[in-house]
């Protein structure tokens, strides 16, 4: 009897659970679908019922020079911020994994802080630094800000990969006469490739989308999110939906690219 009750519970459970899963996915995706639909709607207000199909908002967007410049700026900022954060973050992960030094605990805490630290604090604290030292605000200060805020992401991912790395491989390389830097280049780096690609792509995406740090550290130049932000605060327009749809599309491409790149890694 108890088994009968159990299966009944299981079946009942599975039905409700399937419904719940659908509800959660709907909650996550219906808003995005709404965003896309209204980018093609032939009305300047975002209201139901829909009034017809149009490319108008996309046309408007591609002739908007400010917007195109903002997109260019965002690519510039995100690319350099990603490179910089990898250049600093990877050595940091190495230092945490294999070196012992005074203040290591404090160093780790400090460098991982931005994972949970609101971006606004990174933003105003670096603004204070730049003002104090007398560095004018520009896209370059934004790059420094982003690289600092994203460091924690690179460090956690690369560190986790290094911890799982088999140290015997390096010992073997050393026994075979490889210098430490040769071991690093030929043994360690290929093994942490997936962590580098993963955290690099994530850093790029997050930098491309960043607001709070950019808000405080940018000069007269706007990045894409800052441009959208200032448009949004003036009011809602379907043009933002059109930009948004393109961003969603770009995110999709990035997800696919990262899945493919990381799958290659696993198959090897």
């Amino acid at each position: 009897m108890s088994t009968a009750r159990l299966t009944l519970f299981d079946r009942f459970g599975n039905g409700t659970y399937a419904l719940m899963i659908l509800c959660v996915l709907a909650f996550l995706y219906v808003p995005i679908v709404i965003l896309v639909i209204f980018s093609f709607n032939d009305s300047s207000s975002l209201t139901l019922p829909l009034s017809g199909f149009t490319w108008h908002w996309y046309d408007k967007l591609f002739s908007n020079r400010d917007l195109l410049r903002a997109i260019g700026n965002s690519f510039y900022v995100a690319s350099f911020a990603t490179v910089l954060t990898l250049l600093v973050g990877v050595p940091a992960a190495f230092a945490l994994d294999r070196l012992d030094f005074i203040g290591k605990r404090m160093f780790r805490r400090l460098i991982l802080l931005p994972l949970v630290l609101p971006g606004i604090i990174t933003g105003i604290s670096m603004l204070n630094l730049f003002k104090l030292v007398g560095i004018g605000l520009s896209l370059e200060t934004v790059i420094l800000g982003h690289a600092t805020a994203l460091l924690a992401i690179v460090v956690t991912q690369v560190f986790a990969r290094l911890q799982r790395l088999n140290r015997r491989l390096e010992e073997a390389a050393a026994d075979l006469g490889a210098r430490p830097w040769e071991t690093l280049y030929f043994v360690v780096l290929p093994n942490i490739r997936s962590a580098l690609i993963g955290s690099g792509l994530l850093s790029f995406t997050l930098s491309f989308d960043e607001i709070p740090v950019t808000f405080f550290l940018t000069g007269r130049d706007n990045t894409l999110p800052m441009y959208i932000w200032s448009t949004m605060r003036r009011g809602i327009t379907p043009e933002i939906n059109a930009v948004g749809t393109l961003i969603v599309l770009a995110s999709l491409v990035l997800i696919v690219v990262s899945v493919i790149l990381l799958r290659d890694e696993r198959e090897r």
Binding site: I32, T205, F208, D209, I211, M232, I247, V248, I255
Partner: peptide
């Protein structure tokens, strides 16, 4: 992966 700003805007 979809813009944080957009998700709030929606």
């Amino acid at each position: 992966w979809v813009s944080y700003l957009l998700r709030a805007y929606i």
